[in-house]
Amino acid sequence: MLKLPRIVWDQDKLLHNAAYLDELCRKSEYPINWVPVTKVVSGDTEIIRTLINTGCRFLADSRIENLKSIKEISDSCQTMLLRLPGIHEAEDVVKYADISLVSEIETIKKLQDKACLLGVNHKIIVMIELGDLREGILAENLIKVGQFILKQSNIEWLGIGTNLTCYGGVIPSEEIMLELAAIKQQVERELNHSLEIISGGNSSILPLLMEQKIPKGINQIRLGESLFFGRESAYGKNIPGMYNDVFTLQAEVIEVKEKNSIPRGTLGMNAFGVKPVFIDRGIHKRAIVALGEQDVPVSDLTPLNRSIEIIGSSSDHLILDVTGTNTRVGDVLSFKVNYKSLLYAMTSKYVNKKQTSTEQLVGNNALTY
């Protein structure tokens, strides 16, 4: 039975993108490891299993539930919690995250308590604020924080890191990376503590990597958007040689009618409290698809059939202008997704997920050469 709507993903294209990133990091002037970030696929077991089967022994995610899924598939796969741990989830963090990113002494205290209780060591990367204004301590406070960390019996201080672009849109630069590398040297000089990992950022750092401008000392990057969408996130450009259509959203047409393009009667607010604005297209051919805002942000979808246009939506109906096409009831239409719409669709219990192969997908020639 065909279960719709659904996200279909192409294993061959995903494997190609992973291999491309492997090669890109291998060609770096200085050794760099990359960690696949799986949060956009919401812990999908088949995708996680595929990545692990390629040889990935380290996966990162923002949700404890997804890290637990990874551990259930492979207990030997190392996990990293990307979002700062909450005080009340500290025990689960220690159980399911081999490494967590931290910025608060109170959180470190709680992780120490739970790690001691469970009889394990927990590894941490201290996040440094370098301009983007999301998570991270100020660099001038690191030595004091570091002194506290080194007194903890069950906390292993593995490294430092930073995050850019996600909130403030700050683009990683060679100067910022040099600043991070200098902070590592300061820690090792003043605290006599060697830092194994210097985590330089996410897919927005790829332009620097491709230009061989990541300085010595930065030895880890965390990549999700580039892996799943074949693009860097600093300027939003596709990376030549990578696939940008690993994922496709499919949904069924449940009505096709010729109707007016302007509602009749006095207009008020729609289902989302917004007074809509309509374009007068006259009488035209309209289709309704069984998909809506409860499943995915509709404005982030692009029909693969370029003759079809999205003209509106409600909670569970997507309305299309299909004039000039032979769209019929029962047809399955395909849509290109971006990072945001994939995130929503993979999180929704109403959207099915299915692995497929390249030849089964519409629009399978999207290598961005």
Rank of each mutant, 00 (worst) to 15 (best):
T323S: 13
V351E: 07
D280N: 14
I197A: 00
R83W: 01
E175D: 09
L101V: 07
G282K: 03
I221R: 01
G217W: 09
E135C: 08
V253H: 08
L111M: 09
K68G: 00
P303C: 08
S103F: 05
N238W: 03
R134V: 08
I288Q: 06
S199R: 04
V102R: 04
E258C: 07
Q152C: 15
G131V: 11
C77S: 07
G201K: 00
R264N: 13
T325N: 05
S334T: 11
K259G: 10
L367P: 00
I310Y: 10
N53Y: 04
I160D: 05
N154F: 14
D44Q: 15
G268K: 10
H193A: 02
D22S: 11
R328I: 10
E359C: 01
R264S: 13
E196L: 12
A271C: 08
D316F: 01
T356A: 01
I197E: 03
L101S: 08
G241H: 08
Y344D: 06
T50E: 00
R49E: 15
T266D: 14
F335P: 06
C166L: 08
S28W: 04
Q212Y: 02
I128L: 12
K353L: 07
A366H: 14
H122K: 12
V126L: 15
E174M: 04
P303F: 09
Y344T: 05
S194I: 07
G86F: 07
I47N: 08
R26D: 08
V296L: 05
D92P: 01
Y369E: 06
T266R: 15
H16S: 04
V351L: 02
I279G: 03
E196D: 15
N326R: 09
L191W: 14
T107M: 01
L209M: 12
D321H: 06
G312R: 06
S334Q: 05
T162I: 13
G312T: 05
E104Q: 14
T165M: 05
L150E: 13
I288S: 08
T368K: 03
S315T: 09
T356H: 03
P215R: 07
Q11N: 12
T45H: 12
N260Y: 13
S103C: 10
E106S: 10
I137M: 13
P276G: 11
I73Y: 09
F228E: 03
Y369F: 12
T248K: 15
D44K: 10
S307R: 15
F272G: 00
G282I: 07
N121K: 15
E46Q: 13
D113T: 13
I137Q: 09
V94W: 09
T356L: 00
T302C: 07
E252R: 15
S226T: 10
S314E: 09
C25R: 06
R222I: 07
V337I: 05
F148T: 05
M1W: 12
D316I: 03
L223E: 07
L84M: 11
I105D: 00
E46S: 06
A182T: 10
C56D: 12
L164T: 11
G43N: 14
K349G: 03
N365T: 04
F278C: 09
G201F: 11
H284T: 14
K216I: 02
